[in-house]
């Protein structure tokens, strides 16, 4: 019984190692990239298009719309980062229906990595939007007194992001594993279905929170018409 796929190690050479997290991440990446390649290879620009293209278009435009609803002005600038966050987390949860699969998001290392990416992306987009001075000034709003609290909030919310996703995904697989030993047949299926749902919700929450943080960094003085998750 292991808590994280990090513990399943296929190959190790000192500090370098190839564990289940990295392998399943690569597999997911391969599926996502090859899938998009196959569909986008023969894109139709006419009114009639294939159903796969339709699916991807709905997905992409849906993400774009969500980002815009959060309050980011130029949604396409953030689409690459936020969209990939959502797609990766969602795909990781969706793949749990495959037997023997361990979601990479069930590893605290992966969620930490994603949270660290968000932690870096927020000041990156903030500085790109309002300049270095403008961005740093936002830490001293409304007064200089708030500076340490702002920094703490920045760090703590990153931690919260990482732990929230990890907890949810890990618990899901854990519950299934435990239930399988107790009540083998019907109940684990229900729990898998529930896990799919929570996985989708987590993917949504993760990317929306990242969008909200970026929006807060880029548009501090502007009113946000966004809906909080």
């Amino acid at each position: 019984m292991h808590l994280s796929p990090d513990e399943i190690i296929f190959w190790q050479d000192g500090f370098l190692k190839l564990n289940a997290t990295i392998v399943f991440t690569w597999a997911l990446m391969l599926v996502l990239v090859v899938g998009s390649l196959l569909v986008t290879r023969k894109l139709s620009r006419d009114l009639s298009r294939s159903r796969w293209q339709n699916l991807l278009e709905i997905l992409v435009t849906g993400i774009e719309k969500q980002i815009a609803e959060v309050g980011l002005r130029d949604a396409r600038t953030y689409l690459g980062f936020l969209g990939t966050l959502f797609l990766f987390v969602a795909a990781a949860s969706l793949a749990t229906i495959i037997p023997g699969y361990e979601p990479p998001t069930g590893s605290l290392s992966t969620t930490t990595a994603l949270a660290l990416c968000v932690l870096v992306a927020v000041p990156f987009f903030g500085i790109a939007d309002q300049g270095l001075g403008g961005y740093l000034k936002s830490y001293m709003e409304p007064t200089v007194m708030m500076l340490p609290f702002n920094i703490i909030s920045e760090v703590s919310r990153t931690l919260a992001l990482a732990v929230r996703l990890f907890g949810n995904m890990m618990s899901g697989t854990m519950i299934i594993a435990i239930l399988l030993t107790i009540t083998p047949f019907l109940f684990p299926i229900l729990m898998t279905a529930l896990g799919l749902l929570t996985g989708m919700v987590q993917a949504y929450i993760f990317s929306i929170l990242a969008a909200v943080y970026i929006a807060a960094a880029t548009r501090t003085r502007k009113p946000k018409p966004a809906t909080n998750p």
Partner: peptide, 10 residues
């Protein structure tokens, strides 16, 4: 629970 090599790789 956190393996820092895996974090970097991820």
């Amino acid at each position: 629970l956190i393996d820092w090599f895996t974090v970097g790789a991820q």
